[in-house]
């Protein structure tokens, strides 16, 4: 293990995750007004947005759960519930591949809209484009790992390496050597993803945490009483 490995697979993840956590807390406390999905549907409801947004968002939800299943859940768990190696591999390649493809296509449509539509490109910010680019890199590299390397019988098993490494990061038992030998495609995916984590709290991506599931439980009509204490505090 070289100092570079330590830097990339121990220091960098912890720095970016710290920014991720602290940044969110800071933004949440100081910028409720800027915290939103920043939808641009009002400027143009076009088919690019419709299919781009639907494909991208639903795919990203599937991809998230795919990562939970492949990285966060230890490999040893699956035999316990009767999932064989073949079944897992089949699911990961086909379902993961399909979700990845949907995400790539959706993201491409959204990027095309953002670049081509004059209204969107004028009113949107440069930051939105950088985020889109970063997500694009993470997605395309990750998708290539699944759809090309793994599906064509690549030797490298991320469940033996990246999985334990990621759980090690979360449990403060870093194992940089697990990633040092990974193919560069996987390394690039991990590195780009952690870069995304670092910028996340400062971009529109924060809307992910506002998925309004509480809507399902709440009453339709909301009444609010004036709260002089709170408003006075705000005013000061």
């Amino acid at each position: 293990m070289t100092p570079i490995d330590f830097l990339l697979w121990v220091a960098y993840p912890y720095i970016t995750l710290t920014i991720f956590v602290v940044g969110h807390i800071y933004r949440y406390n100081h910028d409720q007004f800027g915290w939103s999905a920043q939808s641009s549907q009002f400027l143009k409801s076009d088919p690019l947005l419709k299919w781009g947004s639907i494909l991208f968002h639903y795919a990203v939800i599937l991809v998230f759960f795919g990562h939970v299943g492949g990285i966060l859940v230890p490999q040893s768990f699956y035999p316990l519930i009767g999932v064989t190696e073949e079944m897992y591999h089949f699911g990961a390649v086909w379902f993961g591949g399909a979700a990845g493809a949907a995400m790539v296509v959706g993201g491409a449509l959204l990027t095309a809209r953002r670049l081509r539509n004059k209204r969107i490109s004028t009113t949107g910010s440069r930051k939105d484009l950088w985020v889109l680019l970063l997500i694009g890199i993470v997605t395309v590299v990750g998708f290539t790992n699944t759809a090309w390397y793994t599906a064509t019988g690549g030797e490298f098993d991320y469940r033996d390496t990246i999985g334990p490494w990621f759980r090690g990061i979360l449990t403060f038992r870093p194992m940089p050597e697990m990633l040092a030998t990974a193919p560069w495609g996987f390394q690039a995916h991990v590195f780009a993803a952690f870069t995304l984590f670092a910028v996340w709290p400062f971009t529109r991506l924060v809307h992910v945490w506002s998925l309004p599931l509480e809507y399902l439980k709440r009453r339709y009509i909301i009444y609010r009483r004036a709260n002089p204490k709170q408003t006075n505090k705000k005013a000061q």
Partner: peptide
């Protein structure tokens, strides 16, 4: 409103 941002003032 899914986020509950809209409301009627009680008073």
């Amino acid at each position: 409103c899914p986020s509950g941002a809209m409301y009627k003032r009680e008073e």
